[in-house]
């Protein structure tokens, strides 16, 4: 599986909680969230655009930083 790094404009635990619940609904992903750094790492074989659109559901801006 590929590990992708995304920057998500999270500002509080409400945001990181929302991202957690969104990603929990997606099958076949493992993820880690660093709220202070506003980073989300996702391990998945899914398409990057799909992952980005999934993250954008939380209503925050999302930037793809590449694979890690």
């Amino acid at each position: 599986m590929t590990k992708h790094e995304f920057e998500v404009a999270m500002t509080c635990e409400g945001c990181s909680g929302a991202v957690t619940r969104i990603l929990n609904k997606v099958e076949g992903v493992k993820f880690e969230i660093d709220l202070p750094k506003k980073l989300v790492w996702i391990e998945s074989d899914k398409d990057v655009n799909f992952l980005k659109e999934t993250l954008e559901k939380c209503g925050k801006e999302v930037k793809y930083n590449g694979t890690k």
Binding site: T11, C12, E13, G14, C15, G17, A18, R21, C58, G59, K60
Partner: peptide, 15 residues
């Protein structure tokens, strides 16, 4: 459930 601050409120209202 799950909102913690005004920015949570804002993102829901916007979207």
């Amino acid at each position: 459930q799950g909102m913690t601050c005004g920015s949570c409120v804002q993102s829901i209202e916007q979207r």
